[in-house]
């Protein structure tokens, strides 16, 4: 049903919100586990930290940042509409604003994350 129904921007905004929310939750579980390993198994913790510094780890971190940023900004969009229901008439425009802010914040952060990685390789 979810795939068959051709909803508009509102449904997409909600679908991305859900997907990013689940991704953030998965990271939190991972984070609880890796912090637990500091005391329980320091060697495993060190190996895990080395993995986080690999290209795959950095892309995962970047995706996590994107998920947090979208979830936060769209969450604010929902909060704004909750407080001022007439703004629901502009929910599409608010969603486009979310993406504008997402890019304005996301692009500099991307250059910082990947720039630091490239410099660490000594290239």
């Amino acid at each position: 049903m979810m795939v068959r129904y051709r909803g508009g921007e509102g449904m997409l905004a909600w679908a991305f919100h859900r997907i990013s929310g689940v991704a953030i939750f998965a990271f939190l579980v991972l984070h609880v586990i890796d912090i637990f390993l500091v005391g329980a198994a320091p060697d495993v913790y060190n190996t895990l930290l080395t993995f986080y510094a690999t290209p795959v780890g950095i892309v995962m971190e970047w995706l996590l940042g994107a998920a947090v940023l979208y979830h936060g900004l769209n969450g604010l969009r929902i909060v704004v509409m909750d407080f001022w229901p007439p703004l629901t008439r502009y929910h599409r425009q608010l969603w486009y604003l979310v993406w504008l802010l997402f890019l304005l914040i996301g692009i500099p952060v991307t250059t910082v994350i990947f720039g630091a990685f490239v410099r660490s390789l000594g290239l």
């Binding site: 129904y5 909803g7 508009g8 921007e9 509102g10 449904m11």
Partner: peptide, 9 residues
Amino acid sequence: CRTIFNCTD
């Protein structure tokens, strides 16, 4: 309600 807007559309 999850403010999905399918109803309004």
